[in-house]
Write a protein that binds this DNA or RNA. Sequence first.
DNA 1: ATTTCATATTGACATTTTTTGATTTGGCGC
DNA 2: GCGCCAAATCAAAAAATGTCAATATGAAAT
Lengths: 104, 104
Amino acid sequence: MELSPEKNAKVFKAFCDEKRLAILELLRSGEKCACVLLDDLDMGQSGLSYHMKILCESGIVESRQEGKWTHYKISDQGSREALLLLKAITTPNAAANDKGCCSK
Amino acid sequence: MELSPEKNAKVFKAFCDEKRLAILELLRSGEKCACVLLDDLDMGQSGLSYHMKILCESGIVESRQEGKWTHYKISDQGSREALLLLKAITTPNAAANDKGCCSK
DNA sequence: ATTTCATATTGACATTTTTTGATTTGGCGC
DNA sequence: GCGCCAAATCAAAAAATGTCAATATGAAAT
């Protein structure tokens, strides 16, 4: 798993937009073709494509080409990594330095 | 833990900006006063205040007033909830419906 | 009460992200 | 090849977000 502020921010971009959360919610029930997503969601074809690109680049979603259709699903590995990353970001690190500041 | 696409997106907004990731990284080593954050980070006072507000509203950071100083720290509960939320969002739900679509 | 200092808020502006419609690309069948 | 369809890309507009400087608020000290 790679680490860099840039990459990390990118991962979480997947989750900070309501439309993308809606897409993920649909994908929770299994792999879906873009056309299915398209008529379950209130958005146009190019809009969906835009969001799918962001989701794929974040690593949370994988795509699979099948003829002229594209199928998307939640990436097992991507999800696992995001979870680890979130844990890492929010866990106090070993040497909790409470060096004073200000008046304290 | 409350759920709504809106609230969920808000939680993850905390993590999708590099400056905020930098702030969280500093907070990992323990509670910090705004003034300390201020000179460890390359940003102005009002900028810091702006980001701290977002972090607090996401539930990931807690603030504590002490006289005229404000101390910030990573919220244990907020982090735990974010982790659960992320898990929920990315975990396939029970009834994996693979109903066909398109040609499939 | 006045001053001082830390932080919050505001408003103007720049930057980034998202939306929309039009066009392009690429696979498939004819 | 040509036409058809799904999806990607592009370009322009719209909306949201981040930045910066100025000002306001509120607590403490004098």
